[in-house]
Amino acid sequence: MAPERDSATRERSPAGATAAPRPRAPRLDQPRPPRRRFLPEWDPEAFGRLSERIARFLGTGRFIVWMTVVIIAWVVWNIAAPGHLRFDPYPFIFLTLMLSLQASYAAPLILLAQNRQDDRDRVNLEQDRKQNERSIADTEYLTREVAALRMGLGEVATRDWIRSELQDVVKELEERRRHDGHVVFPAERAERSPGRDADDR
């Protein structure tokens, strides 16, 4: 059976013809080859900065003043100038087209600038949140340290406590002196003790 199939395939294929190579399946361990791009490539960051500059200029009073001056000059020229010098007579269709074109480009540029500003605000907000978390952690740590110091200082004799204790001792000695007439301090007792020992002898 196998020789008959081989002979049949040989008869069907024309003489001198070679079998078409099979397309290779893409390998999963290798990256895909880059696709052809019909649009020109540009730097998104540079284009974003340019859009921000344009949007920032569109939002200034200088742009409004210049646009007003150009429109007034356009209208006055096409009304007061001689007929053969008017390039956009009433109803100023070309001026309307230019203003529509300017508005159609200004709106996406402003939206792009707003998106970039939103991204920056989001990053700043995330950084502020992390900074606040670190500040809260530092504050809690300092609070615990201060509480530990207070607890430690509560067991240490402070100057005010020693002063109050000495004042209490002085008051007590004064009361004894008033009551007994004379109070022998420990230092005087130590000085008098050798004399008493000699008398006793």
Rank of each mutant, 00 (worst) to 15 (best):
45 E>G: 06
26 P>C: 10
68 T>F: 04
181 G>K: 03
14 P>T: 05
131 Q>H: 10
70 V>C: 07
197 D>E: 04
1 M>Q: 05
155 E>W: 06
106 A>Y: 07
157 A>T: 10
58 L>P: 00
31 P>T: 08
81 A>E: 04
47 F>Y: 11
186 P>W: 01
37 R>E: 09
198 A>V: 01
13 S>K: 10
158 T>S: 08
15 A>E: 02
195 G>L: 14
109 L>V: 00
12 R>S: 03
179 H>R: 14
190 A>P: 00
12 R>H: 06
115 N>R: 15
107 A>Q: 11
152 G>F: 07
171 K>N: 12
185 F>S: 12
131 Q>T: 13
70 V>K: 05
199 D>P: 01
102 Q>F: 15
98 M>L: 15
1 M>S: 15
161 W>V: 01
182 H>F: 14
120 R>A: 11
2 A>S: 11
53 R>N: 12
78 N>S: 11
40 P>T: 05
27 R>K: 10
86 R>H: 08
199 D>E: 15
7 S>P: 00
28 L>F: 12
133 E>W: 01
83 G>E: 09
94 F>P: 00
154 G>D: 14
197 D>R: 05
170 V>F: 11
36 R>F: 10
141 Y>E: 15
12 R>A: 10
34 P>H: 03
105 Y>T: 02
108 P>T: 01
112 L>C: 02
170 V>T: 12
118 D>G: 01
